[in-house]
């Protein structure tokens, strides 16, 4: 299990290669990459700043990953989440799940993302032509996480 919060970008290929290296039990890796878009709620977005709660963030992510391990037969889970200033097309988050077969990897990857969106203490502030604004939490994200309870 690996959980990292960092300002630096990440290389998905390097991360996936490190995950499968030396572990021939892995038959499937599912990954999700969240990106900064240039539009939100109808306004163009020039960039965003991500803030988090150091200490609690890592604990929350580790708990989510532990929960994924308890629900599915997964071999490894990696979560990297960036903080700081990001621009459209930048990578925000990577979740990668390794398992023997694809079913567990797909399901656990979606579960980790759904829980991360509602449980991990990150906050986005967008820069738009109208000025800066904090992104509001979405009811659809709560609904997505509730599917798993």
């Amino acid at each position: 299990m690996t959980v990292r919060v960092q300002t630096e970008d990440f290389d998905v290929g390097v991360q996936i290669a490190a995950m499968r290296r030396g572990n021939p039990a892995i038959g499937a890796i599912a990954s999700f990459i969240g990106l900064v878009r240039d539009v939100n709620d109808g306004d163009s977005v020039g960039g965003m700043t991500l803030e988090h709660y150091p200490g609690m963030t890592e604990k929350a992510l580790e708990r989510i990953v532990a929960e994924a391990h308890s629900r599915w037969d997964v071999i490894d889970v990696l979560v990297i989440h960036r903080v700081g200033t990001l621009r459209p097309t930048d990578q925000i988050v990577l979740v990668a799940v390794a398992s023997a077969h694809r079913g567990e990897a797909f399901a656990a990857c979606e579960f980790v993302m759904d829980y991360l969106k509602t449980q991990a203490p990150f906050w986005k502030k967008e820069q738009t032509a109208q000025g800066e604004r904090w992104v509001e939490a979405k009811a659809s994200d709560d609904a997505a996480a509730d599917r798993w309870s």
Binding site: G34, L50, H52, Y53, M56, H81, I92, V93, M113, L116, K117, T118, Q119, A120, P121, F122, W123, K124, W134, V135, E136, A137
Partner: peptide
Amino acid sequence: MARGNTPLSASDEVAFFPPVTGG
């Protein structure tokens, strides 16, 4: 994560924040 009725003790760290928006 805590609620209104969560008790407080000396040296606790209490954090208030808006609903989270990461990912």
